[in-house]
């Protein structure tokens, strides 16, 4: 049966052909997060996803892009129309960013990666091109495969094309820094800060929006301490953690125990207050899945990839 939404893009058909239906296969973008989830079996055939922005409709606030396109290339196209996406600007490809699923530094400003993925086309373990989700900004038609694919590290299907929600680049973006200010008070004071970052001594705030709103929020911040403008965010330590926002209180207070956050004295860290991301000098300890979650994950993997040929060696559940 034909579908109105089946792609007729020859680049996607060629990618499906390349992936085929037999033998271990891995797709490589820029390799910026290549070791996440474990190293891929060296026997696997390495393929690359097709590149190019397919369709950017500024008035719809959506963009369709082939997965091998770099995030930087996409941002260049979007920036020309005053738009951006939730994808993190740490280098790498669009497909890689979606397969990894990690949010950028200020998801409260850009939205999260998961919420921005409207439609995906991917090549299945059987070498078939599958479409999931839909191209409109609102859609509850059928099961939410785009959510499942986002962050699945290419273990369920190999991303070929992605339709993303875009959002307007704010009129003004302003990073501010202060010392000896309670970052949690900052977070509670502001309505919609794009980011509130903190280490054990300093606070960095990203305010975005109308210039008048940014100025008004800056004035409110001044009631808590002296904030000065700076060029951008602080440098981030290497390892990324995901913690409940409340757990960051102990981290900032130097009271974490290694599992609840990096131990005091274990090196610099930057915590994203109100969100729960943390960048530290040591990696987050493994977060094993409970047995029931593990069994659902296992069934999904075997349902989507019965022979285990997609990115063999890579598993989820390890930070």
């Amino acid at each position: 049966m034909t579908s109105a939404l089946v792609s007729n893009d020859p680049a996607l058909a060629a990618f499906a052909e390349l992936v085929g239906d037999d033998g271990p296969v891995t797709v490589r973008g820029s390799g910026t997060r290549w070791e996440l989830g474990g190293l891929v079996d060296p026997e696997a055939t390495v393929v690359s996803a097709p590149v190019g922005v397919v369709d950017h409709i500024p008035a719809e606030m959506t963009v369709t892009v082939r997965a091998g396109t770099t995030v930087a290339q996409l941002q260049e196209v979007l920036g020309g129309a005053g738009q951006r996406t939730a994808l993190p600007g740490r280098g790498g490809t669009v497909g890689g960013a979606v397969a990894v699923g990690e949010n950028g530094l200020y998801p409260r400003g850009t939205g999260t990666v998961a919420a921005s993925v409207l439609q995906v086309r991917y090549v299945s373990a059987e070498g078939r091109l599958v479409t999931a989700g839909g191209p409109t900004v609102k859609n509850v038609t059928g099961f939410d495969l785009p959510r499942l694919m986002t962050g699945s590290l290419g273990t369920l299907g190999l991303l070929a094309e992605i339709t993303l929600r875009t959002n307007p680049i704010p009129g003004l973006s302003c990073w501010l820094e202060a010392e000896a200010v309670d970052p949690f008070a900052v977070n509670d004071l502001l309505l919609h800060p794009s980011a509130v970052l903190a280490d054990d001594a300093r606070v960095w705030v990203l305010l975005e929006g109308h210039a008048a709103d940014v100025e008004a929020e800056s004035r409110r911040l001044a009631t808590l301490g002296t904030f000065v403008e700076r060029d951008g965010p602080p440098p981030l330590p290497e390892h990324r953690w995901s913690l409940p926002p409340a757990a960051l209180r102990d981290v900032v207070a130097g009271a974490a125990d290694g599992a609840t956050g990096p131990e005091p004295g274990s090196g610099p860290f930057v915590a994203s207050i109100g969100v729960g991301h943390l960048w530290a000098s040591q990696p987050q300890p493994p977060r094993p899945l409970d047995p029931v979650t593990q069994s659902i994950n296992g069934r999904l993997k075997s349902n989507f990839d019965p022979t285990g040929r997609l990115n063999p060696g890579r598993t989820l559940g390890r930070p």
Partner: peptide
Amino acid sequence: VMLGGLDPEPPGFDLRGAFVG
């Protein structure tokens, strides 16, 4: 089973995201 979590990026497939809807 508990799907998702209070942290922004729980480990494993996004089962919470797939469950909603």
